[in-house]
């Protein structure tokens, strides 16, 4: 049953997953090329100075990508469940509902993690060849809130898609948009979100609960 459910989620998300993975790796490649051309033009020491003194992380093209990927994956995975109220089929499967929703969310989250980790590894491996470990770590810490924002966006979109009423969907969407605004308050400043990481992780757990709530409401008959 477990593998069948994974199979179902994979069928829904595989296209978005592969497209997102390719785009992420292309963006990572673009970041590397930008840094490379900077080094060719000005020398590696100017790149160091830019990163140390001016907070040039060179990873700005990555910024909104995890957000877009999270939303796209959430829609790809959850929208088919709600179109024609197909969720009824899923909820009719002889599998505990709480485990069912957990598995659905875990599948999406793991796919996002794979995409984000691979992209981060590609950038970090290149950075490590030209920068000291501390700078590589700072670049990763700069990207971390963006990746976490991607997971938040995925969970928000999931809760919105699984919600049965348009009214509450709008409320959840507004809530999600505001939370996303918090994730991008200080663009361009490296490692500014270090103290916020734990808050975002707690937020991720809270947002995951929303999908369970949406399902519970659906089962009560709160559907348009």
């Amino acid at each position: 049953m477990y593998s069948a459910l994974l199979f179902k989620e994979w069928l829904k998300t595989r296209r978005v997953f592969f497209v997102a993975l390719i785009v992420s790796l292309l963006v990572a490649g673009y970041v590397i090329l930008t840094m490379n051309s900077h080094i060719s033009a000005n020398g590696v020491n100017i790149l160091w100075l830019g990163m140390i003194l001016k907070d040039c992380s060179f990873v700005d093209p990555v910024k909104y990508l995890p957000l877009a990927i999270g939303m796209a994956l959430g829609i790809a995975q959850m929208a088919p469940e709600m179109s024609h109220k197909r969720l009824k089929l899923t909820l009719h499967l002889p599998y505990p509902h709480s485990r069912l929703v957990s598995l659905m969310l875990a599948t999406g989250t793991i796919q996002l993690l794979v995409i984000f980790v691979l992209q981060a590894i590609v950038i970090a491996v290149y950075d490590a060849t030209i920068l000291p470990g501390e700078m590589v770590w700072r670049v990763l810490l700069t990207m971390l809130p963006w990746y976490l924002a991607g997971i938040c966006a995925y969970l928000c979109v999931s809760a919105v898609c699984l919600e049965g009423t348009w009214y509450t969907r709008v409320i959840l969407s507004l809530l999600g948009i505001t939370l996303m605004m918090v994730m991008f308050l200080k663009p361009g400043v490296m490692a500014a979100y270090n103290s916020m990481i734990i808050v975002i992780i707690i937020l991720i757990l809270i947002l995951a609960v929303l999908s369970f709530g949406s399902i519970a409401r659906f089962k009560e008959g709160l559907q348009d």
């Binding site: 049953m1 593998s3 069948a4 199979f7 179902k8 069928l11 829904k12 088919p80 024609h84 109220k85 197909r86 009824k88 089929l89 009719h92 499967l93 002889p94 599998y95």
Partner: peptide
């Protein structure tokens, strides 16, 4: 108990993103 109940949703809704073969494989596990 749910496994003992077959449900047909109005409009013959099924997982339309699956193929004939995939949907059989999917449900057979349950």
């Amino acid at each position: 108990t749910r496994a003992r109940i077959a449900l047909l949703i109005e409009g013959h809704i099924q997982y339309s993103f699956m193929t004939i073969e995939q949907i059989e494989r999917f449900y057979s596990r349950f």
